[in-house]
Design a protein around this nucleic acid. Structure first.
Lengths: 119, 119
DNA sequence: CTGCATCCATCACGATACTG
DNA sequence: CAGTATCGTGATGGATGCAG
């Protein structure tokens, strides 16, 4: 309900951000591209658990939204690199605040951290 | 894939945050509870577009996660108020950073803002 | 008013197989 | 290596009706 969300909530800035981050994978992709350029195969590994389909799809949408830059190298085997655009880089504070809160939460709930580790 | 996300990404703080914010509705609910307590029916209106089912479901999960406090008043008609717990309040910086970025984005892309308004 | 239960449509997503 | 295409399934979420 990405676009629908915005329609119904007017032009709420929060909704706008959520809209562009529709998939949770996108947040993790940005997190992993923040340090620098990565290849498709590298992202596939660092964004643990993501399927090839979802990775491709997410990257395409993020490229359309101007968050990510795709660079293809005409070599064999093919090499494709992804990096954050200036706009993508500007999301750093958002990701950082999420990381901060997550750390805070995990510190405050060592039991949950433990529960997660034991799963 | 909420829990799965965490399993596969270890104890990444970012993933932890996303995990608790699984539904987009939850972010909007927090946004609307940040200013203060609200009744169920008020949330139903302010979180435009949300169905009763999703509102109830989201609130229940957030209550379990300790983000939201539910207070029932034994009156007729029934009155139920929701507010953010201390933990919920602590998410303010996250929501704020999203709001900041959203505003920044909309300012930079007046065309998209316009497009959204014309939909 | 606040919510739960149910039915049902849609689609997000994973698995698999194939290509430049 | 980095995709595209297809299929199948479970989860998501809306609509409706009922209840404390």
């Amino acid at each position: 309900m990405s676009r629908k969300l915005l329609e119904q909530n007017g032009i709420c800035p929060v909704a706008t951000t959520i809209d562009l981050l529709s998939s949770k994978w996108k947040v993790l992709i940005i997190r992993d591209l923040l340090p620098g350029t990565k290849r498709f195969s590298e992202l596939k590994i660092s964004v643990a658990g993501i399927s090839q389909k979802m990775l491709t799809q997410s990257l395409r949408e993020m490229e359309e939204d101007g968050l990510v830059v795709r660079q293809v190298f005409a070599v064999v085997p093919l090499r494709v690199e992804y990096s954050l655009s200036t706009l993508g880089q500007s999301m750093r504070p958002v990701i950082d605040s999420m990381a901060d809160w997550g750390s805070f939460y995990l510190d405050k709930n060592p039991d949950k951290r433990k529960a997660l580790l034991e799963q």
